[in-house]
């Protein structure tokens, strides 16, 4: 099974993701009724074995929260989206968005924001490829995780390929960073390649 993407497929995927992120950003801004600016994300296709190491630098000195949500569409499109936050960022976001600062509300804020980011973004992606997705409930993998690489290792082992989406966003006057990881199993990678080829043929 080849999970290597051709140059054209890669370009196509990047463009679809850029557009999806733009749509998500606009929706989020309107919904939160506050100025949100999502930068067009840097994406990277990585072998899932490499994932833990990729996040070591950013998360090794801080507590982080990991929130996971499964997605499932037509044509064998499926995977797991993981959003990673630095926890001190999460406290500030909760306060800015008017959530109470007790830990239950904070967890709810984290799952809410992750779910909104994930579902609006992936819906935007699905729309462009005439697909539609259903989602599992977001699950907090860990909200006081000191060892992100280890936690990712446990999760990533089930997947073939990972699409690393580095999302930076600005909320009111503050800049935040979170990472979204789309973990995709091997056979779904092939299905995605077929979908991309179909789009490339159209143009």
């Amino acid at each position: 099974m080849s999970t290597a993407f051709s140059e054209e497929q890669r370009d196509c995927l990047q463009e679809l993701i850029n557009v999806a992120m733009g749509l998500a950003s606009d929706k989020l801004a309107r919904f939160l009724n506050t100025f949100v600016h999502l930068q067009v994300p840097a994406i990277e296709l990585v072998n899932s074995v490499q994932i833990p190491a990729q996040f070591e630098a950013r998360y090794s000195h801080t507590e982080a929260a990991l929130i996971s949500q499964g997605f499932l569409g037509n044509d064998g499109l499926r995977g797991e989206a993981i959003v990673l936050y630095q926890l001190d960022n999460a406290h500030r976001i909760a306060a800015l968005l008017g959530y109470d600062t007790d830990s239950a509300s904070e967890l709810e804020m984290l799952t809410d924001i992750s779910s909104i980011l994930t579902t609006t973004f992936l819906n935007g992606l699905a729309d462009q490829i005439d697909n539609s997705l259903s989602y599992s409930a977001p699950r907090v993998l860990s909200s006081r995780q000191n060892n992100v690489p280890e936690a990712l290792q446990e999760t990533a082992v089930h997947w073939e390929l990972a699409l690393k989406v580095d999302i930076s966003y600005q909320l009111v006057d503050h800049s935040f960073n979170c990472d979204m990881l789309l973990l995709i199993p091997g056979e779904a990678v092939l299905n995605i390649q077929q979908i991309l080829d179909r789009i490339l043929e159209e143009y």
Partner: peptide
């Protein structure tokens, strides 16, 4: 509900939180 209507995307609640 407002988020579901506005964003046209699902929202969730778990017994662990509520």
């Amino acid at each position: 509900f407002a988020s579901v209507l506005e964003l046209q995307s699902p929202s969730f609640s778990s017994w662990e939180q509520r």
